[in-house]
């Protein structure tokens, strides 16, 4: 490691301070907004210190609490999408990780191509389809269609974790008389469990933050929290306090999950392509 002069260090820290201010400042400012009285949303010059006001959270989540059901919807849709994707993704990831087969690269790329396809292209036909099969506004409409993102993502990430489970252990189990399936359950699943949990957490966050599917496929009683924030614009005037309170609650689960994920963040965000 090179030694750095004092002046270099000061420059680097000054630049980092600017970077942190730019990237964290807006979040901080918005969280403060959630605790401001609506009459103070636009006070200039900006007030850093003020009497915290909890009414925004009260209005949106307690009384009348229009956003409380949306919080529940978000949990149902994100959990449902995550759980549904797991069996499909586990099987596919195991196949791609453990077998030599023709067309493997093509299949992997095919999954990625789904992840980078424009979702709006699929959403409009789904909208018609769901009303035809009686799923208009139903949770399962969102949970099933979110699989276009959840399965490809989980396959990629799970494969990267399964690649790290040593083949020797699995082979040892076969020698002991266990079949492929038994070895999969007894060796791969437990050893890849951290990876399975990490993958589930990412799928949960991506489903949670998704707006395009719930926007088109939900009804008022099943819509999710991020979509709920948008509805404030429809009513007369913009209630920034309410928007901020709802948005702050919507941003908390992903933030907490990312903090818990720690060193897996790089791997998850790159679908397992970069180990980090």
């Amino acid at each position: 490691m090179r030694r750095r002069s004092r002046r270099d260090k000061v420059t680097i820290y000054a630049l980092m301070a600017l970077v942190m201010l730019f990237f964290l400042g807006p979040i901080f400012w918005f969280i403060l907004l959630a605790f401001r009285h609506p009459s103070e949303a636009y006070t200039l010059p900006p007030q850093l210190f003020f009497e915290p006001y909890l009414g925004n959270f009260g209005d949106t989540f307690v009384d009348p609490g229009n956003n409380a059901p949306q919080l529940l919807s978000s949990v149902i849709v994100s959990t449902g999408a995550t759980l549904l994707s797991l069996p499909f993704a586990l099987a596919a990831a195991y196949a791609l990780s453990r077998f030599a087969m023709r067309g493997k690269e093509f299949i992997m790329n095919w999954y990625i191509s789904l992840l980078i396809a424009p979702p709006i292209v699929f959403v409009i036909p789904y909208f018609i389809l769901m009303s035809r099969i009686g799923w208009a506004g139903a949770y399962q409409a969102m949970i099933v269609t979110l699989q276009t993102l959840a399965i490809p993502f989980s396959v990629w990430l799970l494969k990267s974790f399964m690649d790290e489970v040593p083949l020797d252990l699995e082979e040892a189990a076969w020698v002991d008389g266990a079949g492929r399936f038994a070895a999969f359950i007894r060796i791969i699943i437990p050893l890849a469990l951290p990876g399975i949990i990490v993958t589930s957490m990412f799928t949960f966050v991506f489903s949670w933050n998704n707006v395009i599917f719930p926007l088109a496929l939900s009804k008022q009683s099943t819509t999710t929290l991020p979509v709920g924030t948008i509805s404030f614009f429809a009513s007369t005037g913009v209630y920034w306090g309410h928007i901020a309170a709802t948005a702050v609650v919507a941003m908390l689960p992903p933030m907490i999950i990312f903090l818990l994920l720690g060193r897996y963040v790089v791997r998850g965000l790159t679908f397992g392509a970069v180990k980090g």
Binding site: V19, L24, F30, T229, I243, F258
Partner: peptide, 16 residues
């Protein structure tokens, strides 16, 4: 701490 903006739903970032 730097990853925080990336964790937000794009809609929430939009509101910010």
């Amino acid at each position: 701490a730097l990853i925080m903006p990336t964790t937000l739903a794009p809609v929430v970032a939009g509101f910010l």
